[in-house]
Design a protein around this nucleic acid. Structure first.
Length: 172
DNA sequence: CTTCAGATCCCCT
DNA sequence: GGGGATCTGAAGA
């Protein structure tokens, strides 16, 4: 099986569409692979989005355009995001271990740790090695839409997506 | 320089 | 199910 990175055009679409389409895709970092099973969308006009109040030192990666990796640290945990359009991104919340992944992956911090993603990787491209997202033809049966987890603002927006029945989803 | 809030996780009850 | 740990960066004085 040859894994080919998704093209930039995949990310240059409506953030919610990208968030849903990312479900079932393979996230590849070096020799480690997980299947994305849970995501959250963060929009430009969304108070919970880091880019909501403009560009800061921390979130500059969210303004670098489609297919950029945005990694931020919170509570001693790293969380990884996929930037779509300027100021918008998709948080990868959980993954299913496919190859060379040890430990738990059900949660943003745990997933980043299991994949070896650090904040030094903030701002790099997702269009090729060492990190990229690929499609192996896996088809998602059913997508569940719910409110986001953990955010303090705009918590009622239905912007969280996960694969129904997948046991690696971080929370019901 | 000081204060404080946060897209989390772990452990105890 | 709930509270505390613990650190980085943003905001205010």
């Amino acid at each position: 099986m040859t894994l080919k990175p998704l093209p930039k055009s995949f990310y240059d679409r409506d953030t919610i569409e990208v968030a849903k389409d990312l479900l079932g895709k393979l996230l590849v970092h070096g020799d480690k692979i997980v299947r994305i099973v849970e995501t959250e969308a963060y929009l430009k006009n969304d108070p919970a989005c880091h880019a909501y109040k403009g560009m800061t030192k921390r979130n500059v990666s969210m303004f670098k355009g489609p297919a950029t990796l945005y990694v931020y640290t919170i509570h001693r945990q790293n969380c990884m995001n996929v930037v779509t359009r300027i100021g918008e991104a998709v948080l990868i919340r959980a993954g299913e271990p496919i190859r060379n992944v040890k430990g738990r992956t059900s949660g943003p911090g745990l997933l980043s740790k299991a994949l070896g993603v650090t904040r030094e990787m903030d701002g790099i491209s997702l269009l090729g090695p060492p990190i990229f997202i690929a499609d192996d033809g896996y088809e998602v049966n059913e997508i569940v839409v719910t409110k986001r987890v953990g955010v303090a603002k705009a918590k009622d927006r239905p912007l969280r997506f996960y694969i129904k029945g997948n046991k690696f989803v971080s929370r019901k």
